[in-house]
């Protein structure tokens, strides 16, 4: 393999209408890596994920995935290339069954033939989803819905998963389960870029982290180094 990163975001600006949400943001993610995006509410973390998955188009800059420019593609084309975005707030389809939610994860043509195979992987990871496969998604607990959202994201055979605020609104014990699942997903060779409010948690789980502030990346590096950075300590650990 070449030395090229799996995902390369270079100098992007993103706007919501006339309001600029991202300023000259660059980021690289190597294959098999876990990268955490850290920052306060409104710092642009979710916007960055939305821009990568094509929900919003950047006004400037480029996004390359496996060396191919994806910044002008639509979300459904980006999914087909192997990027799966698990959105903030889980966004499961409330009035569809758990099984139908999972099947929709394999909607793109490349993933359809592997539907059964991926279903068994998801059920192995989250046995509760198999037990509840015929229930409507809205009847699941918050933690189960998060597992459904993760499982649904896995159904498209991703090479890279974008995970937004997985632990929001979940009980600590459930959060532990979600992260346990995350480690298993990583063992399958899937690269992860995740947004997390809990900085301590992020620095424990990730290999590298990017810290964002007001729509800009202000700091990035290996988590071991970041933990020692004075700014990080002050801003996030209150030391």
């Amino acid at each position: 393999m070449s030395q090229k990163p799996l995902l390369k975001v270079s100098h992007i600006d993103t706007f919501y209408g006339s309001i600029q949400a991202l300023w000259n943001v660059s980021l690289e993610v190597e294959a098999q890596e876990i990268v955490a995006l850290i920052g306060a509410n409104g710092s642009g973390k979710s916007t960055l994920l939305d821009t990568i998955s094509g929900l919003i188009r950047p006004a400037k800059g480029g996004i390359e995935f496996e060396g191919e420019n994806i910044s002008t593609l639509n979300p459904f084309q980006i999914v087909a290339l192997g990027i799966s975005h698990v959105p903030e707030g889980r966004r499961v389809f409330p009035n569809l069954s758990v099984l139908d939610n999972l099947i929709l994860g394999s909607y793109n043509r490349a993933s359809r033939p592997k539907k059964e195979q991926n279903l068994s992987i998801v059920y192995e990871l989250f046995p509760v989803l198999e037990e509840r496969k015929n229930q409507l998604a809205k009847t699941l607990s918050g933690g189960e819905q998060q597992m459904l959202a993760l499982g649904r994201g896995l159904m498209s055979n991703p090479k890279l998963m974008l995970l937004d605020e997985m632990s929001l609104g979940l009980a600590p014990i459930v959060i532990n389960n979600v992260y346990k699942a995350l480690r298993k997903i990583r063992e399958k060779g899937i690269t992860l870029l995740f947004v997390e409010q809990n900085v301590r948690r992020s620095l424990e789980e990730a290999d590298r982290a990017c810290i964002m502030e007001a729509g800009r990346v202000v700091l990035s590096g290996d988590v071991a180094d970041l933990r020692e950075e004075e700014e990080v300590k002050k801003a996030y650990f209150g030391i």
Binding site: L55, R91, F93, N95, L96, D100, L104, Y107
Partner: peptide, 24 residues
């Protein structure tokens, strides 16, 4: 059918449907 489920999905949450690879 896949298309039928996609119609359900798009009606319940358009953005999430797009993230499933559905051309809404």
């Amino acid at each position: 059918t896949y298309l039928g489920k996609a119609i359900h999905a798009a009606s319940q949450d358009r953005r999430a449907a797009q993230l499933m690879g559905i051309n809404t």
